[in-house]
Write a protein that binds this DNA or RNA. Sequence first.
DNA 1: TGGGGCATGTAAGTAGTTACATGATTGT
DNA 2: ACAATCATGTAACTACTTACATGCCCCA
Lengths: 178, 178
Amino acid sequence: MKAGGVEYVILGALSWGPRSGYEIKQLVDKSTRFFWAASYGQIYPELRRLEAAGLVAGAADPQGGRRRTRYSLTPAGRERLCAWLLEPSAGYELRDEGLLKLFFSRALEPGEELEVLRALRADRENVLEQLRALDRLGVARATPALVLDYGIRKHEWMVEWCREAEQRLAGEAKEVAS
Amino acid sequence: MKAGGVEYVILGALSWGPRSGYEIKQLVDKSTRFFWAASYGQIYPELRRLEAAGLVAGAADPQGGRRRTRYSLTPAGRERLCAWLLEPSAGYELRDEGLLKLFFSRALEPGEELEVLRALRADRENVLEQLRALDRLGVARATPALVLDYGIRKHEWMVEWCREAEQRLAGEAKEVAS
DNA sequence: TGGGGCATGTAAGTAGTTACATGATTGT
DNA sequence: ACAATCATGTAACTACTTACATGCCCCA
């Protein structure tokens, strides 16, 4: 992941057809942001860098008096994307504040520990609801749909794990009390 | 997560007892790195910042002729940690290269799509093995053990999901071929 | 006597977010 | 006329990684 970062999000988005920077950002916010976020501050500069490298081509495509540049993948860009898809991956990076809190929650009173776990579950349920809303829109097909299925089922699993852990923790608390 | 970042990893680590910067880094690499990484370049400066803020206290604790500074939580530091534990969280941030690849793998030939999925599973199996190795060391207790259980079971789930998705994809490929 | 682990640090670079600025269009 | 949305951008900032530098100790 070192070099690039946002590069492949853009090449991937353009592999579905020409898009403007704005449209790429919308696509990211509706889908990849759950596993790969990107901001305007990355997208616009990167689009120009990729054009200079010959991987994408921009064409003016104004909507009324509103200027717009839509980019499309060049053959070189498609080749780069496919090469990356078949390369070994760098795994994943996760920063999960809820898990970090659970990890250190021994510092609290036993009852409060349970609160941390409940808050973790609420977080997961919240994301799960967002993913289900995306699913109801029913836009995704093929591998994007596969990834959405992964997200929904994973969050269902996480919510269920939290529930079980809550019962375990609550049970231990009772034992200690008795 | 804006302000701080590494702050709570340090406060949390010190809530288990006094530690040097080096020891904190070891703890991070053996445990929290799966959901919250930190480098020396963050830890040492942050330790001095936290000391200046009165949240931790450093004491010289040399090992032979080898100098060492061990830090411990001050009451103010413990208070800060507990306040954070009970605060609402900012959720999680994930950058998962394997999922991103799967998401865009339609750009490949159908057979190659399956390769991307298999590579994703291999990645997850690899992390799962790391987590199981940690489990075999049997160091974790209480909430840290809970989090390790979460990690192992989640990765088991993810590996299983990949297996099923591989079969689904392989099945579709056959249908198209017939 | 030399490699590996302990221990502390920093400089330089990269990546990413945030907040702002601009201006046109569409719908109410 | 106003708000919302389309559309493009940038400057300043913060966070984080990487690679390096130093030096000591222990053990084979």
